[in-house]
Nucleic acid binder design. Structure first.
Lengths: 349, 349
DNA sequence: CGTGACAGCTGTAACGTTTCAGTATATTCC
DNA sequence: GGAATATACTGAAACGTTACAGCTGTCACG
């Protein structure tokens, strides 16, 4: 028996990656004891525990993810589900950084699960759940009645949504207060004397479309301004489409003297359209736009902006998912980010 | 024995995720046979093979990643290593989509491994290799003498770099021909009669810094134009810094009449700086800029652009890594993307 | 008819981890 | 002094997969 033991442990001592067996040999303990000592189980003596942890640190022991995952089902993976056609560029980049920031000192890895225009958005989620590929999921482009959220809720897999749902179901989310954004934008434009306002909306069908439209409508009647309907485009449309349709709009007899845009890229096209129609920003029309990086004021200093922080969104979403995985109540993991107000830049900036 | 078998297989037939055991029971074969049948091993009868594969498809069998990984060490993971501070926004987004596009119909997952300013860029790579977390790695911000490439080459882990190295070591890469970009930009500006050119470089130390500078210098002497040194900024600097230093530069007696910019975000700042100095784009100075999304011409129609396709880069890099994993020679997995020429936009566009 | 080759299949072990059901020794209680 | 209890540890089994060695039956060959 002693001989056997030695043979086995010689193997274990080779310069391969250390495992529990390696640690067990080095400390003279059993594999079970080592395993429990590393997770601070109460039935292990204080000194043994310290000894094991010291040795583990010394030789750089790292639990084998596959072993853990096979045994426990725990993947230590968070998956971010992204649409490969319609996400905003800055959104992808910033939200990823926000998420990684939070999971950096956890054992979690971030995997990006894409889906394309042609696919059912439920597909990637179903894949993740069915294959048990992640402990938690983050989704964007949330809809009021979102089948993905419903599905994950049924299956009991922790997730968080960027944007709220409206199905009477409770789950973690992070959202930007787009109602407040639109309302503040309207008020600001009204303050500048603008009375005929148009809105370039988020994609119809997503939750924040409604929020934005409602904020717009409520503030319009509050300040007594009127809407110039502009339903032919949303920020999901191509730059070209937004540009030409904005130009068409601005050439009409009754054209808006104020435009509110829900995304920076769309704003570039809107401004181009305005100028195509021979009008001047700041004189003939004012534009308030959301932006996620501080670039629009370089584009046209007359632009009025409201900042939305996607990195913060990523962090909050990651925190929510981890919280749910950690056993917190889903209802306690919801957050709403308030717009910081409309910002104007002076020429001298 | 028959009883035993039945008991075991009843378990296996429960509505849990199907495993090889489930398939073995359903087909009446052994687990080994099923395993081999699914991977088209030659020693399995043609009919058996078809039968197993049919049943597997029917019940939606998916191999358990943890099982495979534990047994074989194969992770089916590609890791994209990103700097969380200095990557271009569009780069992150597009390269991710490029990669996911290629791995979409493979068993591979994409994990994003971040590192920050304060960290040694080797850290994340070392982590990946030591923990065996990925079958292949993609890195960006490649340096002529890149410790990460050297390290991975030593350890024998497949990888691809965005940008070339210059260490006499051969490995897969994808690169944009920044030498050609800079040279074409110089020639184009010279063609417009511009004779005093400045260059806003990539980050000093990265491989494409040298390529760009060389292309710039060679073309300068070719066309007989001169350089106005502008070494105080690179595209890694903040928008503010680039803007103010450009303004300073443009207020000097000997100021450039042509500027070449290696990134779109920097270009916004450059133009702002030019205008801060009271000069007009297209009249006093022309600017040629790289861009990765078609937005700069909306910003100022006078801007001259060269397009770099990061989504393509992502796809190529993914293909390279998969190729290397699949046994192809690293030297055969290198690609260089040529600039498509300087593009000008007419006002009417 | 015995031998060898071969096709087609199977059982066992192992990857690294955690959980379950213990065991041995010391401590407490009546 | 004996039983109960607590403390500190241990071996075996299992998660799902693949590699290895081996088994059985068929067929051709001499």
């Amino acid at each position: 028996m002693d001989k056997e033991r030695k043979a086995k442990d010689d193997e274990a001592t080779a310069q391969e990656r250390p495992t529990l067996k390696t640690l067990a040999f080095m400390t003279g303990l059993g594999v079970t004891t080592v395993s429990r000592a590393l997770k601070d189980a109460p039935e292990i003596g204080a000194e043994t525990r310290r000894r094991v942890q010291l040795v583990a640190k010394q030789i750089g022991y790292r639990p084998n993810r596959a072993g853990v995952r096979l045994r426990t089902g725990k993947t230590n993976v968070i998956s971010l589900v992204l649409n490969t056609e319609h996400e905003l560029m800055s959104f992808v980049s910033d939200i990823i950084y926000g998420v990684t920031e939070v999971i950096a000192d956890t054992p979690y890895h971030l995997i990006v699960t894409p889906y394309s225009r042609s696919q059912d958005p439920l597909d990637p989620v179903r894949y993740l759940v069915e294959t048990g590929s992640a402990d938690g999921v983050i989704i964007s482009r949330t809809q009021p009645n979102d089948p993905r959220a419903r599905y994950m809720l049924e299956r009991g897999i922790p997730f968080a949504t960027h944007g709220r749902t409206d199905m009477g179901l409770v789950h973690p989310y992070h959202d930007f207060n787009n109602y407040a954004f639109a309302a503040e934008a309207v008020r600001h434009l009204a303050g500048l004397g603008r009375r005929r306002l148009a809105l370039v909306t988020p994609p119809v069908g997503l939750s924040y479309y409604r929020h934005t439209v409602n904020g717009f409508a409520d503030a319009l009647s509050e300040v007594g301004a009127s809407e110039v309907p502009f339903n032919t485009v949303s920020i999901d449309h191509s730059i070209e489409q937004i540009r030409t349709r904005t130009a068409q709009l601005m050439r009409r007899d009754i054209r808006p003297d104020g435009i509110i845009s829900s995304a920076a890229a769309a704003t570039l096209a809107i401004v181009a359209g305005i100028e195509d129609a021979g009008l001047k920003l700041g004189r003939d029309v004012d534009v308030v736009s959301k932006q996620s990086s501080e670039l629009l004021h370089l584009f046209r200093h007359e632009l009025l902006v409201v900042n939305e922080d996607f990195r913060l969104a990523g962090s909050e979403l990651a925190r929510s998912v981890l919280g749910w995985i950690g056993g917190a109540a889903p209802g306690s993991l919801q957050s709403l980010s308030e717009p910081k107000g409309v910002v104007a830049y002076r020429r001298s900036d």
